[in-house]
Simulated scan of single mutants.
Amino acid sequence: MPVYWDSLTISDLAFNLGVEEEVVKGELTDIGIPFKSSVTRVEPAVARRVRASLRQKGVIAAADLSDLRRPGNRTSDSADSARIAFGQALRTLRKKEGVSLRSVAQQARYSPSSISAAETGASLPKWDLVERFVRLCNGDIEHFRKLYQEVLLAEESRRRPSASSSGFVSIQVPAQYEALISIFQECVPANVLDAVGSMWGAMRESEYRTCLVLTRWAVEVVCVDKGINGDSAPSAGLAFLNGRKLINDDLMRWGKSILQLTNKVAHTNYATTYSDAESAIRFTVALLSQVYLIGDQIESFKKSRDNS
């Protein structure tokens, strides 16, 4: 059901749109509408113009506004829920620090509408925005990195035809890997396939930076599957796998070089290339091969030998 507005205060308009008052004030300033405070009343035609502008910028969704009374109230799938929860975590962090949205926007060098879109979950921001936001609000970068990776995985899962399918089902796999993938689907856990499949999906969409970031997630889920503490750093996880002789020294060194690159991507403006993402994909294929095809087969042989 559409929302029919009478004249609203700026505060009420912001509430109905699910954004900060500063975002509405910014829009009013941009279109030349004067105001004195949050209780200044806005005519319906102006309110509709503000709404249209915010929709065009992706700050609010184009859905019926009656579903946007409060951020996060929309009926949504898991990807929407993950994105909205991530936005709420950002907003909670900023509120806890007592920093205004406009102040964060100015210091992070992003527009207030971009920050608001991130906080309301209308869209998933670039990692660069998230990292600047969290640092400005004295948040835990690694905590938010993991939350961000979870949203990326949820977004990728939504693009697949079946939520129960493994990550490779809907992804165009390079011909040289087709035989391996069919084997992986028989012996690699679904959550591991999902993580690596998401990397492939990012690669296919030319999201090379995302592909690199997801490498850390892929390493983590393999390590957790093999018994390491989930809070351990991925580089420590590779050492753990090496210590159990599930991967050899060369693969461990290769993996650590990939992880160093992911850190560079996450903390700088490094221009990620196709070659970088391809190297990450090749590494994860080698990782799955050594851990689940070679390592598990050797473990199985040892057990059968000990029992004979």
Rank of each mutant, 00 (worst) to 15 (best):
26 G>V: 06
27 E>L: 02
28 L>E: 05
28 L>D: 05
30 D>M: 13
31 I>T: 10
32 G>W: 08
33 I>Q: 14
36 K>W: 05
36 K>Y: 06
36 K>D: 09
37 S>Q: 07
37 S>G: 09
38 S>N: 04
39 V>P: 06
40 T>Y: 06
40 T>Q: 05
40 T>V: 05
43 E>S: 05
45 A>E: 10
45 A>D: 09
46 V>Y: 04
46 V>I: 13
47 A>D: 00
48 R>I: 03
48 R>L: 11
48 R>V: 02
48 R>T: 04
49 R>S: 13
49 R>G: 12
49 R>M: 11
50 V>T: 04
50 V>Y: 01
51 R>P: 07
54 L>I: 09
55 R>M: 08
55 R>D: 01
55 R>K: 11
57 K>Y: 06
59 V>I: 01
59 V>L: 01
62 A>Y: 00
62 A>T: 02
63 A>N: 03
63 A>Y: 03
66 S>A: 06
67 D>R: 02
67 D>P: 00
69 R>Y: 05
71 P>M: 07
71 P>K: 08
71 P>L: 04
71 P>D: 04
72 G>N: 09
72 G>Q: 06
74 R>I: 10
75 T>V: 12
75 T>P: 08
76 S>A: 11
78 S>H: 05
79 A>G: 10
80 D>Q: 10
80 D>N: 12
84 I>V: 15
85 A>T: 15
86 F>E: 02
86 F>N: 03
88 Q>R: 15
88 Q>L: 13
88 Q>K: 15
89 A>G: 12
90 L>V: 06
91 R>V: 09
93 L>R: 10
93 L>N: 09
94 R>Y: 12
96 K>C: 04
98 G>H: 11
100 S>L: 12
101 L>Y: 13
101 L>E: 13
101 L>M: 14
102 R>K: 10
103 S>W: 11
105 A>T: 15
107 Q>F: 15
108 A>M: 08
110 Y>L: 14
111 S>Q: 15
111 S>G: 14
112 P>Q: 13
112 P>H: 14
112 P>W: 12
113 S>Y: 15
116 S>K: 14
119 E>C: 13
119 E>D: 15
120 T>M: 15
121 G>I: 07
122 A>W: 00
122 A>V: 02
122 A>E: 02
123 S>N: 09
125 P>C: 08
128 D>P: 10
128 D>V: 09
129 L>W: 06
130 V>R: 03
131 E>Y: 05
131 E>F: 07
132 R>A: 15
134 V>A: 00
137 C>R: 08
139 G>A: 06
144 F>C: 01
144 F>A: 01
146 K>M: 12
146 K>A: 12
149 Q>E: 11
150 E>T: 11
152 L>T: 01
152 L>R: 05
154 A>P: 01
155 E>P: 00
155 E>G: 01
156 E>S: 05
